[in-house]
Write a protein that binds this DNA or RNA. Structure first.
Lengths: 231, 231
DNA sequence: CGGCCTTAGTGTAAATATTCAACTAAGTTA
DNA sequence: TAACTTAGTTGAATATTTACACTAAGGCCG
């Protein structure tokens, strides 16, 4: 938390991040332990004040916080929502702009060293982490989970939890893990083809002690949406 | 724009509203003409600074602005997105939390007198109003339209543009108008039944020079979402 | 080398959903 | 009372989804 010379901006707005990744325990969120009041000692979503002298925009602020906590520079990032009221922080009126970030499993593995010491991955159980969180962060986390689970149904979002290159089966496993149910292989394949989220990596196959699988990558760094005529 | 005594909060965050209604020209947005710099004389989305002494939370701030401009107190309100950077306002870093509000045609008719003088309904053409707007408001309006058009496909949002009581045909017309295409009557009826957005108003029928139609109302003041298994 | 195991990827028949258009219903108007 | 208008229903043709079996292509092991 830096002090600002710029008199025009008393920091009152923070950027908070719900950073998700797939760990062996399933979908997990990164939490940090607060070191100062209020809520000292409690777990919280990583966040920080906006620095109007450093941050070009809100997304840049979110990237900076992410970099500080995890070392990752190019995550999937999506704005979730903004809350502001006088109750969420005992110090008074404050605004929090919440972002969702998705990290791939190898992002997490590679940067284990860069990760902030007081930070920890916590597996998701139901609508939260089974832990009381600082501020209104439990509610923010619940919203973030709702967004993620809803976007599984109609977007390429789950692909951002995998490394850049993956097979269809690996992707299907992520969808299944987020949805909490098994999917039909042939239907999944057809849906992905129609949705046009994926690009085969020419000539590259994943080989194991069985038939090799085509390797794919996402066509876009954003989460693409599948449009259907519903009405 | 009031001055704040509270030293802890130099206003830097505004709430801006994309207020929509159905006018004879179709979907329209409420614009106000700016009276002071920057962008004096330009059209803009209605908005205002957040008053931490008056506004319990961001949504309350949005309701206050709406009331000031239109006289309407209980609109449909939904948070769209938050932008913040140093370019959107020539005076420096600023944050805008944007809300979408939907007014019913009779809200608008009844409160014609309460409506701010410098405000005007502008019909939507394509992705905007064919008018250059102050700040980054043209981009914000475009985002708002994207959100609305996407939610037509899977939510009860269009119902909030109608008076509290309406017939299925009236509702279908709104969907058609927002989608820009005709829908099948029987498919629409079936979809609405499955979606469970609507509640028949017992015994109440809309009578004209033809067979009377059942009157419905929305089950909820929020926009309910239709969940389908897509994958 | 050749059979076996495993996972990749395809095919297909049955069940379900969508579409399109005609039909019946219930009022007002002349 | 017949014509007209919009509400609401029905059903056959068509398209899509689902469930599951089948074929493909490797490595492994005797």
């Amino acid at each position: 938390m830096t002090t600002h010379d710029n008199d025009a901006f008393k920091p009152i707005a923070t950027v908070d991040l719900a950073i998700f990744s797939l760990t062996p325990a399933g979908l997990s969120v990164l939490l940090v332990r607060r070191t100062s009041a209020p809520f000292a000692g409690d777990w919280a979503l990583p966040g920080g004040w906006i620095h109007i002298d450093e941050d070009a925009d809100l997304e840049a602020a979110a990237r900076r916080v992410l970099k500080e906590k995890t070392g990752v520079e190019t995550p999937y990032l999506e704005q979730l929502q903004t809350t502001g009221n006088r109750d969420r922080d005992p110090r008074g009126w404050s605004i929090s702009i919440v972002y969702i970030a998705l990290l791939s499993a190898d992002d997490v593995a590679e940067r284990q060293d860069a990760m902030a010491e007081e930070a920890e991955w916590r597996p998701i159980e139901g609508e939260g982490v089974g832990l009381s969180l600082a501020f209104d962060h439990a509610a923010l986390l619940k919203e973030a989970l709702g967004r993620i689970r809803s976007k599984v149904e109609y977007s390429s979002l789950p692909g951002h939890l995998l490394p850049v290159r993956f097979t269809l089966s690996e992707l299907q496993s992520v969808y299944e893990s987020l949805l909490g149910r098994k999917l039909d292989k042939s239907a999944f394949r057809k849906r992905m083809a129609e949705a046009d989220f994926l690009e085969p990596v020419e000539g590259e196959m994943r080989r194991a002690s069985n038939r090799p699988a085509q390797v794919f990558r996402l066509k876009d760094t954003r989460s693409l949406v599948l449009f259907d005529r519903r009405i």
